[in-house]
Write a protein that binds this DNA or RNA. Structure first.
Lengths: 334, 334
DNA sequence: TTGTAGGCGTTATCAG
DNA sequence: CTGATAACGCCTACAA
């Protein structure tokens, strides 16, 4: 009684395979009693329809892929939770891929997904805007794709982002209002759409405040903790800014470490604000002023867009923009 | 040129489907040149073998499932990263499931996995040790299962844990050495193996230190932030402990919030130590003394055990125990 | 080295 | 309401 397939079960019940099959599909006509009988016996024999046979027939995997650059931060883990929850409610399964910000990995993962493994993809981009041919292939195969947070502008698919420009603009003004005159902007990849948009908000806010823009205050950092640490140490000791605007949480964290080690008082010597979904921002020393994105909602919306496409069978191009919230805390108090 | 299958490609190349198939399988004999020709043309036509057809033939999904109670914390996200990395290196894909600590969800997820969707499962348990029949079913189907961190003791499968008893023992002594005489133990589910083991370390350390054990100092908390907040508030104001040992990170965080709100000075009034993989523990106010588990390594080892089973085709029962490290910081300084 | 043919387990179509 | 049959797309004996 090791491996039961539909034939075994049918034979056991003296029915045809089609009848048995019908018992498991919702739609088809079948006598309620025989259905019960079949399901009961199936439970006894521990039978479940083979997934791969069904998928092969139906050309549908009921699986989606989630691709993120990073996992170890509250933003992505909350977003993933949101996606996974929606997916499960729809009866879908979620494959997860972490690229560690490696563009090549992103490419090979995507290529590996084009064989029917998934019905759709939700992703937050890793690399810079270079060769996106691998994504165009997806379109040819009618594989729905939804971006969230980190998007590629040249790819025309559904996107869910936050009001980054506006948030950056306001965050910069927040620092100015707190008395900052020399604000550095820490960014990891300003050519990536998200870095670029956020920087523009910073630049325009300075202009609005009548502070001349100085490109030396835009600091290119790294994904690598140590490298960023060195860069930021140097910036804080030589440029000596009175304000730090971190485009991503990780850089704010590194800045905190640097300040701790160099004994630079936050917020007296330098004020810090950052995009961050860190749940314990209030517990940091000092508590961190954040631009908090609705991470979970981003995930939920992304998933909903994907299912909209999946259910309609048509591509979806909506661009949903959610609002972030600036939460002032001690790191920027005057 | 929309949908290419192996037949199309074969016809296009004036070859048989078997030859084409061989070009994609590593093993079989095939002329190097024809192989090249096939692969080249396949690339042009954008052909990839259909996954579900292959899986159906080979009865193998090259997919594993990762089931965790929670995602939004550094411990699980690091562990998942470790697992996912190993899996990808082995050519496997990883499905992710988050139970939110709901036992019923765990059951239904597992049941949903028994239809060939995955070749193996890695999980950290959600519920209490009650009815584990659904897991025994897995064994009948020869589906390998590996537990990490949170295990069910009555299920005899491969497990990867940390030296929780020893760590708890030492952590408790650490508090005593720092001058604590009235130490509360915060736990979420002491009937769950992990809560139980950690509590035992606490109990035995008290005995070793000659401090009588008082069961009122073992505080049952909740997964829900607010509920725990209320419980811990009450504890800190009525019992007035001078030491807090949190069995899981979440409870230490809540304790911090409570202390912040009630103006209870850490570490002067109360010292806090916790199991935690929080990367920014040094940046908290005050920095948090942690028992840090090698989260990523736990994941890696779990994945390796699973693949050991998958590759040998035999069940694996190894129990790997990794060491945690106590990192003293200001929250327990005297 | 290549081709032929049967079957992996399901489900949809069409008859009965 | 139920049964027979033909795909779904691929892989592997086996034959050539």
């Amino acid at each position: 009684m090791d491996k039961v397939d539909i034939k075994e079960l049918a034979k056991d019940l003296k029915l045809s395979t089609s009848t048995v099959s019908r018992a498991f599909r919702g739609n088809s006509d079948i006598n309620a009693q025989t259905k019960e009988r079949i399901l009961a016996r199936a439970r006894e024999l521990n039978y479940q329809p083979n997934l791969y046979a069904s998928n092969l027939r139906e050309k549908k995997s009921n699986t989606i892929a989630i691709i993120v650059p990073e996992l170890a931060n509250d933003f992505f883990s909350q977003a993933i939770k949101g996606i996974e929850r929606v997916a499960r409610e729809k009866g879908y399964h979620s494959l997860i891929y972490v690229t560690d910000d490696e563009y090549q990995l992103e490419v090979s993962i995507i290529n590996d997904l084009s064989n029917g493994r998934v019905d759709g993809i939700i992703m937050s981009a890793s690399g810079e805007a270079k060769d996106h041919n691998y994504l165009k292939q997806l379109k040819k195969r009618h594989m729905p794709l939804v971006f969230f947070d980190r998007v590629y502008d040249d790819i025309d698919v559904a996107k869910v982002t936050t009001n980054d420009y506006e948030s950056s603009f306001n965050a910069t003004r927040h620092l100015v209002a707190a008395g900052c005159k020399k604000i550095v902007f820490l960014v990891i990849n300003k050519s990536l759409s998200i870095g670029n948009v956020r920087m523009q908000g910073y630049v325009d806010a300075l202009a609005a405040e009548g502070i001349p823009f100085n490109k030396d205050l835009v600091i290119d950092c790294s994904n690598d903790h140590k490298k960023s640490y060195n860069i930021i140490s140097k910036v804080l000791t030589t440029i000596k800014p009175d304000g730090v605007f971190a485009a991503v949480e990780r850089l704010a964290i590194v800045s905190y470490y640097v300040c701790q080690d160099l004994n630079i008082n936050i917020p007296k010597k330098v004020k810090i604000i950052s995009f961050s979904s860190l749940e314990i921002a209030p517990l940091l020393s000092p508590s961190l002023t954040t631009i908090t994105q609705p991470a979970r909602d981003l995930g939920v919306h992304a998933a909903q867009l994907l299912f909209k496409s999946l259910e309609s069978g048509a591509p979806v191009h909506d661009h949903v923009v959610l609002k972030s919230k600036i939460i002032p805390r001690k790191s920027t108090s005057s």
